[in-house]
Nucleic acid binder design. Structure first.
Lengths: 324, 324
DNA sequence: TCATTATCTGTAACCGATTACACATTACGA
DNA sequence: TCGTAATGTGTAATCGGTTACAGATAATGA
């Protein structure tokens, strides 16, 4: 069954395609009777305007590209969902790309998106820098990472969140607090680490940082080492929730009781935290809100609205559960 | 910075656009010298063919639509990743849609996809039926659900998987096995339930089914009730892993030890199962493999290949961890 | 009543590619 | 040497819409 085109409609309604177009888009003048005829023809033929043809002329596609490292990382499903909901509601389609943070690939994708007339780009990337976006006319909003102070972005105050986390552990009576850090090449991991270091110093405590990579396995190994090398540790601030889960598993395996012997706090506020036992205390990010805000920002940019504020920095919120 | 078009290239290389097109697509005859000139022009102008214009003419978009209920459901991230990897490798872009299983919305999306010349559709849906796909010329592959015996699909033998799960519990010494079922309107939930019922009957055991909805909260409530109403239950087969996690949480809360007092087995094999304590025994689905297979199937369909086999049914595999 | 403006509609160019077709030239086998 | 096939290239139609422009008619105000 071939799809009807605007010409078919025009012929059936005995008008020109221009008039049909006016009816479809509700633009220009169209006599009421004519409109009726056209609408009837549209109904009869079950006509739907061809999005591709429209895109070609308008140089827009009613779609946006969303670049993320890996949907399999539990931080992203919620973010993607929030973005999708916002954009779908506005009539936009999402092109989703998992890049594993590979810059070359990300740059290729940007070219691809240009050639598809994507209306905007939402990016979560550590590798993309301002120079890669120099002569890009498509609006870009960065989520969770600040690519450049000038580039619109939605992010979290990782530094302050980390300090809050440390203070919470302190308030819970911890005397020896270690930090399981994220990958060095990721800004938010460094910021969280710095927050930890500064807050420790502020309290005249010796810092103890073990490197992790935001993943479970590695975190478990790190904690296994950490707890054998430093038996006096009674509080661990993990750089993200996934590692916090690993921390709890490792500590439990070594016979420590959480939170009695060791208190653990994570960062992110992903759902997994509530599924484990004990439920994880964490610095929660407003993921949905960030996705929504990022999307609205991009939508404004797409619509050519003046952006009064470019950077949106949210505060992580302490959610106390049973691991501290 | 305006993007260069094929005309710009043609002008610079002093040839017609037809020749440029031939060079780009490596089709027809092009003299070696001419090719060189054109390629040089392409390089100079940093020209990339416009995907939209190409789509319009070719009536294809090098993109596919992927309909899923909710990316937030931990079953889907892995599936999406597998699909994306396969299609990206083949040069296709993914349009991702979360529908929450709302039929009206799904049907609208199909219209949208038609108008975007999507080359194929991958669907995970309980609501879409064959009649909705009747006069659709775009190839469709169903994943995880069998929409119609005629429609290409990739799925799991839920029935057999459920029976295996029951047998495992039996082998572990359970004498009173309950089932926490999924939503009635979802085929795979019914199949798993039926598998449970049949295997129980086969062993002359009284079945005990509590209804769940594949979600954590509801599962916890159900199990709380179940275990107070039936104190002799020593094995629970949860319809999916998320509910299995809920089961463990609820049972633990009531003071039962897992697996000593009650053994729990789930279904799906999602990552969360490995993060909780005790780690979850489950009937693992080859999610990645299913995503890959579904994608390849669709790719074959798109390329007009003859499909020798339409239905691919995988077997769930028992992964024994610490909850049984 | 007449100039002016508002309403209505069609023609044709355009968006940026692809390709059928025609025509010219070259290569080749007999 | 000539007929045929292979090679090389351009013209123009096409994909399915949108819109600038122009021309026609109707409505309005002075």
């Amino acid at each position: 069954m071939e799809m009807a085109t605007i010409k078919d409609v025009a012929k059936l309604a005995k008008v020109s395609t221009a008039t049909v177009s006016r009816v479809i888009n509700n633009s220009g003048y169209v006599h009421e009777d004519t409109r009726k005829r056209v609408e009837e023809a549209i109904r009869q033929l079950n006509y739907r305007p061809n999005a591709v043809a429209r895109s070609l002329f308008k140089k827009e596609s009613k779609s946006i590209g969303f670049i993320i490292p890996d949907i399999t990382n539990p931080f992203f499903p919620q973010l993607v969902r929030a973005v999708e909901d916002t954009f779908m509601k506005a009539g936009y389609t999402i092109l989703l790309f998992n890049t594993d943070g590979v810059l070359d690939y990300e740059l290729q994708l940007i070219e691809l998106m240009k050639s598809k007339y994507v209306d905007g780009i939402l990016a979560v990337s550590n590798s993309i820098k301002r120079e890669h976006l120099q002569d890009l006319t498509i609006p870009v909003v960065s989520i969770d990472r600040v690519i450049d102070p000038d580039l619109p972005s939605v992010s979290i105050d990782n530094y302050d969140g980390a300090r809050q986390a440390v203070r919470h552990l302190l308030a819970k009576g911890c005397r020896k607090i270690a930090h399981l850090s994220g990958p060095e090449n990721i800004d938010n991991a460094r910021e969280r680490c710095q927050g930890y270091l500064d807050e420790m110093k502020r309290n005249n405590m010796h810092p103890l940082v073990y490197p992790g990579n935001y993943e479970l396995k590695e975190a478990m190994n790190a904690v296994l080492m950490l707890l054998t090398e430093h038996t006096d540790v009674d509080g661990i601030f993990a750089g993200n929730d996934v590692m916090a889960v690993g921390t709890i598993k490792a500590a439990t395996k070594l016979g420590y009781k959480i939170p009695e012997d060791i208190k653990v706090i994570g960062f992110d506020g992903i759902d997994i935290g509530m599924t484990i036992t004990p439920e994880l205390t964490t610095m929660e990010q407003p993921i949905l809100e960030m996705g929504r805000k990022g999307s609205e920002l991009l939508l404004d940019l797409i619509h050519g609205k003046k952006i009064e504020q470019k950077r949106f920095v949210y505060q992580a919120k302490l959610v106390e559960r049973h691991s501290t």
